[in-house]
Each structure stands twice: as structure tokens, then as C-alpha cells.
Design a protein around this nucleic acid. Structure first.
Lengths: 237, 237
DNA sequence: CCAAAAGTGTTGTGATTACACCCATGT
DNA sequence: ACATGGGTGTAATCACAACACTTTTGG
């Protein structure tokens, strides 16, 4: 009854929702699709899963190819499998979100892709169901970042607490008290204070910090509980 | 370069991690596989996705077919796509978890499947990567139930607060103070007190409650924050 | 009357908020 | 000197854990 041979085979792809942070805004990396259908329209970066690789492998390969970067934070978001989602032929796609340091990316960029960063709340229309993918990735990012320190993945090697605050504020579209924010972040002991300051945004200057990678990896699953009102998880942005 | 026609096609399936609660323990519904490979071994309930349906449709169909029940709480957990996960032919599988009222299920059971409930922490070895699916579903259940009232899906139409407490306690393998637990649950206003009592487990008897469906649906996303120490999310069970 | 579980009251503690205040420095 | 953002101090409030206490009722 359930014979393998009688089942239908179909195409299997991945799409990546790539987040970046430029210091002011949360951004989304999009490309103009280079082949039919919908050639020229804006799209997530994606690709077909090859015979010898898993979906995770494929998403990692796509990211590496685009950005030149290894070891990017990546997470499976959801699998989209509506029979009509791809207009050419039935294709199931697994959406992955990726958090990348926008500065590292700039150095490594693969020009072939003509990729462009858009503000997360002002991006062009996307092909197929890519908007649903982006929306789901945003929601999951908010959800998870309320509990885990993963937003640190979006920052460069050294950064200031006010910069980190700016990032949290634009992920949740709310403002935090700077004193309380700083104390809460530092109470996690995940950051190491450096000796030099960033003097671009104030006269006094703000100390740089870096992530204590050891503690970050060990304590990633510890709660932070950053979000006062849970509704911002859904209603933000 | 990225032509559809050149890509490989593969098999696409769903597997369901079905949770139930018998009043004492959290349970997992398994079947003995009825076809090769691994015929006779224990397995999650699953099936291939058909041409005209999405993975969600397929999981819903599988559940309906097994249990006779509609409208079961279902959630996509993760997609498993290792090239070697199925020994016969490459098959990608989307895992779904389902929460069902074990009492309703008993009335509707499809005998064809020879399905058996196992305690969540004492079940037989499973085929392929089904154990990884179960583990991920358990972790996600803990994670999500700490924030949302979804464990109510596992209880019958009317139930007592101590029964609900027993459920939370076995999901997290910790004990809660009965007074604090009761107050916290009732503070959500999601439950409606009924006039009759369950007298089976105490002389005094405990009042039955039912879920206020309207508020449940409206407030599902509100936080509960049930878990005092976040580590139980990972280390429990 | 007693045991046993349901359910209520109460108190101390620790986290969190809101906001005042001080600090460092380029102009 | 002063404006500007960084950073610290602190009192009031709140949420919650802990646990004592009351209630109900079958035996």
C-alpha cells in the first residue's frame, strides 16, 4: 500500500532570510533573481538541494557562496510546501534564517549576486511565498532573541552597549532605559569590557565590549527575558 | 545555470510525534511499521505527501486517519533531510508534533494501526532518525509550554487544577507549589470554574474547570513564564 | 475525629522600573 | 562653560517563592 516506488518525487530547495545590522537599522539581504520564472524580481537567496547534501548543507553552501563567510549563525525556520508555491514545478523549500555581521560581509561580498540590503520594514515585493518566509523569520527572531543572546551574532567583533541597545530597540520597536539595559546585559557576564572607546557618537565615548565566546557558547540557552510586554513579540515592526 | 530540469527529485514525507496525557504520565503514540524496510519495528506515524497536498495537509490527513479526530493541535517541528536518513531511497521528512486528548482518542481509535502509547521517557528504539524527531519535539514542547498555554490541549474537556499541575510537573520533571501553581494558572483567566468536583483523588474533591476557548484563542500568545529555572527546559526528562 | 488533599493567606526577598544624578570631553 | 551622550545610584514597586493555615469529607 505505501510502496516507495508509487510515490511522487519533487524538487527540494532552500531559501535564506539573511539579517544584518548597520548600526541603525535591521536589514534584509535580497537579490534580483537571475533566471526564469520571475527573472529580475526581488527574492531571497536560495538554491536547490543537491543529491549528496542535506538542507542544512545546502543553506550553508548558498551562504558561503554569497558572502564568503563560514560559521554563520543559521537556523531552520520552517518548511514551505504548498503545491502551488512555485509556478514552474512543485518545489518544497526549507527556509533558514542567518545572522551576519554586516561589516564582515562587505569585505567578502560576491559581486555576482548583486545583493542589496533593505531595511527590514521597507523591502520590495518578493517572489512566491518569500514574504511569508521573511515574516516568519522576523517573528522567530523576536521570539528567540527575547530569551537568548543571539542578537550578538549581528554585531562586529567589538561594539558598545549603546550600539547593542540600538539593535534591541529596532528588533522590538520599543525603547529601553539605558541604565537598566546596560545592567541587564552585563549581568549575563557574556561580554568582556575592552580598554578602548568608540568616540563617534558622543564626546565622552562608550567602551567597546566583545563577546566572551566561551561563556556565550556555554550559556546560550540561559534565559534573558528581555521583553517586558510579550505583545511586542508579535506586534512590533 | 540553475535550471529546474537539471535538479534531482526526491521523496517527501511527514512524521507525527503524537503526545498524550493519561493523568499521570506524558505519553507518545507509536506504531509497528507495516511495510519494508524495518517492517515490525517501532516508528512514528507518518506518510508520503501526495501530489495535491502540502505537508500540513498530509500530517492532518495522517492524524485524522489514525485517530478519527479533526482539529488536533499540530505544529511543524523540523525538517529532516540527511541524504542517508532513509535506507531505501532518499526521503525528506517534515516532523510535526500533535497534542491530543487521550480520552477522545480512545473512543475513535483506528484499530488498523496497532498503535500503542508509551511513556515519553521509556519507549522502544525507533527507526531511522525518529528518535531525533521525538527529542526535538519534546524540547520544543517544553520551550513553548513555558510561555504559552498549549498543554491545555492535552487535557479532556473538563479537568482539575491538580491534574493540570501533574501534567506540568511531568513535562518539566519538577514539582510546583500547589498554591502558587493554582494562582498562576487562574491569573491567566483562561479557565472557567465548573460547579462539580472530581472526588477520585481526595476526600474534599477538586473543582473541575474548562478552557474558555474564546480567551484561549485570543490570548494564546501571551506569556505565562511558567518555568522558574530555564535549565529545566533542556535537562528535564 | 483523623487523614489527606484542596485551596487561601501572608510574609520576605529579589528583580525591575523609573528617574535623578554624575562623568568625560570636543567644541 | 556647556551640551551631549555614557554610565552609576537609588528608592518604590512588583512578582513570586515559601510555607503556614483553613476547608472539606470519607472512613
Amino acid at each position: 500500500m505505501k510502496r516507495y516506488s508509487q510515490q511522487t518525487r519533487l524538487l527540494f530547495a532552500v531559501d535564506c532570510i539573511i539579517f544584518g545590522f548597520d548600526g541603525l537599522e535591521l536589514k534584509l539581504l535580497l537579490i534580483q533573481r537571475g533566471f526564469e520564472p520571475c527573472k529580475g524580481q526581488w527574492s531571497l537567496v536560495g538554491g536547490f538541494v543537491q543529491e549528496n547534501e542535506s538542507a542544512e548543507d545546502a543553506a550553508g553552501r548558498v551562504l558561503k557562496n554569497l558572502s564568503g563567510l563560514d560559521g554563520i549563525y543559521m537556523e531552520q525556520i520552517h518548511t514551505f510546501s504548498s503545491p502551488l508555491r512555485d509556478t514552474v514545478e512543485r518545489t518544497v523549500s526549507v527556509a533558514y534564517s542567518a545572522l551576519i555581521d554586516i561589516q564582515k560581509y562587505k569585505q567578502q561580498l560576491n559581486e555576482d549576486f548583486q545583493a542589496v540590503w533593505f531595511p527590514i520594514n521597507h523591502h520590495p515585493d518578493l517572489i512566491f511565498d518569500h514574504k511569508a518566509m521573511v515574516d516568519m523569520a522576523k517573528e522567530k527572531l523576536r521570539y528567540k532573541a527575547a530569551l537568548h543572546p543571539l542578537l550578538l551574532e549581528l554585531l562586529p567583533g567589538k561594539f558598545t552597549i549603546p550600539q547593542l541597545q540600538q539593535l534591541y530597540e529596532c528588533v522590538y520597536n520599543i525603547t529601553f532605559d539605558k541604565g537598566n539595559f546596560s545592567r541587564k546585559i552585563l549581568s549575563t557576564k557574556l561580554l568582556v569590557k575592552l580598554t578602548d572607546k568608540d568616540k563617534l557618537s558622543s564626546r565622552k565615548g562608550a567602551f567597546y565590549y566583545k563577546v566572551d565566546k566561551k561563556k556565550y557558547n556555554a550559556n546560550f540557552h540561559a534565559f534573558l527575558n528581555f521583553v517586558p510586554d510579550p505583545h511586542v513579540l508579535l506586534n512590533a515592526g
